Amino acid sequence: MTHTTQFTNTEHVTHTEPDRSVFFLGGDLPVRRVGYGTMRLADGPGEPSGGEAHIWTAPADRAAAIRVLRTAVELGLNLIDTADAYALGAGEELVADALHPYREDLVIATKVGVVRPSPTEWVPLGHPAYLRQQAELSLRRLRTDRIDLLQLHRLDPEFPVAEQMGALKQLQEEGKVRHIGLSEVTVEELAEAEETAPVASVQNLYNLATRGHDDVVDHAAGRGIAFLPFFPLAMGAHAGPGSPLAQVAGEVGATPSQTALAWLLHRSPTVLPIPGTTSAAHLAENAAALEVALTDEQFDRIAAAA
């Protein structure tokens, strides 16, 4: 993909109110602040779902999965997130089948650094040569000569952070990777990684009910780093009828899911939720969350209850 827009999050100045629905990933790639995560486009009926999903095989209904991906882009969701570990590379192939040749404004993110010896195992592997090999395979499967955002799926404690980041930096210097991201890291790990190469994004588990990475959200905001919460819509009893989330949803004329996404968008200007779904209707619902604005009081009320 070729992008010509050159701005930074701190230097992009206009004479009008900035579009808060757009974030400049890595300082130069404008993306809508709700993206699309492709992890759920795998397996088939009867397989475990949610946090227990295997993400092991290509989707049972490939045509339907392709339609969902194309619909996401048609709705303006131009940040598409996948990984080499999703269905053993079939997830990346699916993205290419659906969207290649890529639109000028489309940003494709993928991940390397996890091996899948079985349907239930996700094992970090940070050997620098392995990371570089996997990136080469991702380039082939995605049918591109440069990955917009290559994320280290997990840090491997068996290898120094500098060596793992160094492998991604080498790919960046070779022109095969535009920006580097991390996943499931602490503030300390993020800071250590930044000593080797700039970090454009962090993808951690985070939602209304799971806020263990509040400090990472704040650190990322202070550094102009995108924070991509995965499983952004995990909701429990706090989202049920009569809950503060449901009450606020009624006040703003939105669904509870849209309001939960709006809460994330309000949480920090660098938060970019990437909800996944196999439903075109849910895609449209998620995309419309960008139009939902919460007051500080509504934000606090939801946060206190959850």
Rank of each mutant, 00 (worst) to 15 (best):
R70T: 12
A289L: 04
Y36K: 02
R211H: 13
E163C: 12
F23S: 00
T255A: 04
A96V: 09
A260K: 14
H54A: 02
A289K: 02
P48S: 14
Q247E: 13
V34H: 00
H219D: 03
F230V: 05
G50W: 15
V95C: 05
E52L: 10
L41V: 04
G26T: 01
V216C: 03
D218Y: 06
S268P: 05
L99Q: 10
P256K: 12
A191W: 13
S201C: 11
F23P: 00
L228D: 12
S279A: 12
A287Q: 06
P128Q: 09
L75N: 13
A305D: 08
E121Q: 09
L155E: 01
G113A: 10
P48D: 14
S21R: 03
R70W: 04
P128H: 03
G51F: 15
Q151R: 11
G76Q: 14
T38F: 06
A63W: 04
T71H: 15
T270P: 04
Q133K: 05
V217Q: 00
H219G: 02
V73M: 09
G27W: 00
A254D: 02
L125K: 13
F159I: 15
S183Y: 03
S257V: 15
L131S: 04
I55Q: 02
T8L: 11
T4C: 12
Q164M: 09
G76F: 10
G91T: 09
R223I: 06
A209W: 14
T259K: 12
T277C: 07
E195L: 06
I274Y: 05
T210M: 15
F230N: 07
N78Y: 03
L77M: 12
L208D: 14
P256L: 08
E17F: 15
V95N: 11
V185R: 00
P241K: 03
A288P: 07
D148G: 14
V68W: 03
G236V: 08
A220N: 01
Q151T: 11
P128M: 03
Y130S: 05
L152M: 09
L25G: 00
Y206T: 08
Q164G: 09
A281V: 13
G113I: 03
L245R: 03
A58V: 05
V107L: 01
P241D: 01
E11N: 13
R146S: 12
E291P: 00
T8P: 08
H266D: 01
P48Q: 15
Y130P: 05
A60F: 10
E297G: 09
P232R: 01
V107C: 02
H219Q: 07
D105E: 11
G27R: 10
P48L: 15
S201D: 12
G35T: 00
G91Q: 09
Q258C: 14
P275R: 02
A129T: 11
A58R: 11
V115P: 11
T295S: 10
G276Q: 02
N207Q: 10
L290R: 00
G46I: 15
S243F: 00
A289F: 03
A60D: 07
Q172Y: 07
A63M: 07
N9W: 00
Q170E: 13
P124S: 02
S257R: 15
A193V: 01
I147T: 12
P241E: 02
Q134C: 04
E93P: 12
V217D: 02
M39W: 10
Q133H: 04
L94Y: 11
L233W: 06
R70F: 03
K169M: 15
Y130K: 05
A63G: 10
L245K: 02
A288Q: 05
Q170L: 10
L261W: 10
D148T: 13
I108W: 01
